[in-house]
Design a protein around this nucleic acid. Sequence first.
DNA 1: TGCTTTCATCGGTATTTACCGATAAAAGAA
DNA 2: TTCTTTTATCGGTAAATACCGATGAAAGCA
Lengths: 108, 108
Amino acid sequence: MRETTSQSPEEPTACCGGKSDQLAFQLKALAHPARLEIVRQLQERECCCCGDFCATLDLAQSTVSQHLELLRKAGLVEYQPEGTRSRYRLNRQSFLALAGAIGAVAAK
Amino acid sequence: MRETTSQSPEEPTACCGGKSDQLAFQLKALAHPARLEIVRQLQERECCCCGDFCATLDLAQSTVSQHLELLRKAGLVEYQPEGTRSRYRLNRQSFLALAGAIGAVAAK
DNA sequence: TGCTTTCATCGGTATTTACCGATAAAAGAA
DNA sequence: TTCTTTTATCGGTAAATACCGATGAAAGCA
């Protein structure tokens, strides 16, 4: 267990353009109230471990861990094992890029 | 059939904050390759009807119509029945707002 | 008045997702 | 070493989503 931080969907779903799928994957990773809450918490605390989210979220620890894994796979959070716990923090660049992609749609 | 354009999730899923759910709902609406493709097409063509997307997407007409309904419910596209067809166009403001919300996460 | 086009909605199936409890793995403390 | 803490992973179930074909409703045309 405990592999290092990965990015991108590991199985590209083979549908439309890979770029489109990557974007869809990131959006999907963000498109859940619990995961949004995790992100919000990371905005304020900079660095949290799984237990911190469990204290907040009213979900089983295994469920929280799975939400974190998704965010991690999407490249939206970074992950660093530290002793017996795992530290998570935002990948702000990913959020910037994502915001850029969405904002570009609005551009005339 | 053919009600007028609506916004927001009609059943708020009763989970976390309503604002969070609204955001999650919009993100989810966008988080699908076919719906991203629809949006992309609307970027270039300004105004398309259902059949235009069907020609592009290699999905059944009923499926495309359902994707459009989702985008509409999320407030990401606007909809205007016109004779026997339905005209869809981007709601650019929604995209701006969405980009803002995501970009705000990155803000230190 | 039919006939055609365009689209939305319905009913159903298959896949995916969300969630849980139980368990395993690693690290640290006693 | 054994016990505890912390987290990831597994196996399973329930709910949501994606998709299709068939059907229905409007509007326009012949």
